[in-house]
């Protein structure tokens, strides 16, 4: 694993020492698709561990995809491989598009971005034929759908299939929440309703409360300093933090998405001035800041360190 470490030893490329991600990264580095195939087949289809591995493998393949093509040639009907391929399509497409503002993305990039993403549908069709019950290709498809600007009706149809197969998938709900943001293809009303409906039915320890914190951060945080201060100290945000703390406490310590929830909690508790509680989350996180909301900051390691130092000082 290549850790992008800063001067103070903070890894900016990773959210934590997450076993599923580390295992997948090691397998990709070795190019060992047989090991991937065996390992993924041994896990329950809807397990967060498997879904996390599939995502990490897709990202890794976008850097070097030789093992993926060997795997697909050898096992063309393996839905794990096809799910990795859809995730790969998404990451390659975003490498083509880059994170630049839309007006700075040229025609050649847009054409290639959309053409690359359109592969998703073909691959999903193959995966559905091979095993319609596997949620992993469908969850991967959610990001293709966002990029291809699917309508709400098309998207909800896909989402219903995902929910049937993996009702509490962190990635599935997080992607759906983003799709329903006003900045994409939803509205404040739609995204709030989606988040609260999901959380009302989610068991404690699903770590899905991270989604509510992200929504509040992205859509309900005022732009001005005074407004922000009031927002972070306000009742709604602090209730969301309390729910998040309880969710984290109830979660399996090995849940691959638990560190992602902890980043939201640490950041939120620090902003809310609940420093002692923030320190608890920072200690559980360790020296990693490759996660939202730190990714939104220009100097993410600096901000992370500042927040952590302030929390530890109490």
């Amino acid at each position: 694993m290549t850790a992008v470490a800063t001067g103070n030893g903070i890894d900016e490329s990773s959210a934590g020492a997450i076993a599923a991600e580390q295992e997948a990264t090691a397998m990709a580095a070795a190019g060992d698709w047989r090991a991937m195939s065996r390992r993924l087949a041994s896990l329950p289809p809807a397990s967060e561990y498997r879904l996390a591995m599939v995502t990490t493998l897709g990202d890794a393949a976008a850097k070097d995809d030789r093992w993926l093509w060997e795997w697909l040639a050898a096992e063309p009907a393996n839905t794990s491989a096809l799910a990795v391929q859809i995730n790969y399509v998404v990451t390659v497409a975003w490498d083509v598009r880059t994170a630049a503002l839309p007006e700075d993305v040229d025609r050649e990039q847009w054409q290639t971005f959309f053409r690359t993403l359109r592969n998703g549908k073909i691959i999903l069709a193959r995966a559905t034929t091979a095993d319609a019950a596997d949620p992993a290709p469908l969850i991967a498809m959610q990001t293709v759908a966002l990029g291809l600007q699917w309508t709400n009706d098309e998207y909800r149809e896909l989402l219903a299939k995902v929910h049937d197969r993996a009702p509490y998938s962190f990635n599935a709900h997080n992607r759906a929440m983003r799709y329903f943001l006003p900045r994409w293809f939803g509205s404040l009303e739609l995204v709030e309703r989606y988040v609260e409906d999901v959380l009302a039915g989610a068991p404690a320890g699903s770590v899905l409360t991270a989604m509510r914190l992200e929504m509040l951060y992205l859509e309900f945080r005022p732009k001005d300093d005074a407004g922000r201060k009031a927002f972070y100290r306000g009742e709604r945000f602090n209730r969301a933090l309390d729910a998040g703390i309880a969710d984290a406490a109830a979660a399996d310590p090995a849940h691959p998405k638990l560190p992602y929830l902890r980043h939201w909690l640490a950041h939120g508790l620090w902003q809310a001035g609940r420093l002692a509680e923030a320190a608890v989350q920072f200690r559980a996180i360790g020296n990693y800041c490759g996660a939202d909301p730190w990714n939104w900051y220009g100097d993410k390691a600096g901000t992370f360190r500042e927040a952590r130092d302030a929390s530890y000082a109490t």
Binding site: A61, A62, D64, A93, D95, V96, E108, Q111, T112, T116
Partner: peptide
């Protein structure tokens, strides 16, 4: 475009396909 953006080989291949 691929050279300008310094993208990894899989993204280079997509630009070539275009």
């Amino acid at each position: 475009t691929a050279m300008r953006l310094k993208v990894p080989p899989p993204a280079q291949r997509e630009f070539k396909k275009n």
